[in-house]
Nucleic acid binder design. Sequence first.
DNA 1: ATTTATTATCGTGATATTGCAATATAGATA
DNA 2: TATCTATATTGCAATATCACGATAATAAAT
Lengths: 107, 107
Amino acid sequence: MGVSKRHLHTMSVNQLADMAKVLSHPARISILNYVGDCDGCLCKDISETIKLSQPTTSQHLQIIKKAGLLKSKFEGKSQYYRINIEKLNKLKGLFQEFFETTEAKCG
Amino acid sequence: MGVSKRHLHTMSVNQLADMAKVLSHPARISILNYVGDCDGCLCKDISETIKLSQPTTSQHLQIIKKAGLLKSKFEGKSQYYRINIEKLNKLKGLFQEFFETTEAKCG
DNA sequence: ATTTATTATCGTGATATTGCAATATAGATA
DNA sequence: TATCTATATTGCAATATCACGATAATAAAT
């Protein structure tokens, strides 16, 4: 459909949609699951675990990181990814608020 | 990238991603907000409210309905949409579980 | 029967997403 | 320096998404 008409919607609506988009690909959910488990893991290991190529995995990692859900730091040639707990909590709150206000309206 | 490699991921991971995809477009968030407010509203009204064409609005409605988050019933020539509270609650649980298990791993 | 009103579907163009091979970048090591 | 290792970026092909005009379908109203 061509381009999404974001300007028609409020900032917070766009924000929630943007974050949902990050979670809308199974590879990115799997990545978050795995990074949560190992707490500080490498693109290579993630790639092998989720069975996607290194470039594809790296791209998904960038998307999640850009959204703020992952932090990373280099150590030598390795980049260690871990979950940004603060951001994850904020996001949890965003979704919770959406569900609860929607629910409240209907009740 | 061509097609998404769903088969690499678990059922529940794919499920969560599918539901996130429904919420990944601002128009669909806006629709859920509006339908929650009016509780039983028409495609035409929704379309005018969110300022997207009737066909586009109808398509978004089908996507949300197919995911189970909306129910509808015809009355005369009008179709009344309302939120499926049970499904919304289930979805809320899904996200909550994802956030909490992810959070627990990191803590 | 014709018109009006509401919604769904089809077809299409524009854009975005997904995936990977090839390549680039940069630190570590021989 | 040359090589190895880990990651990021580029370029591309395949596919999916988004938006809407045109059209179909259906029921109410005239």
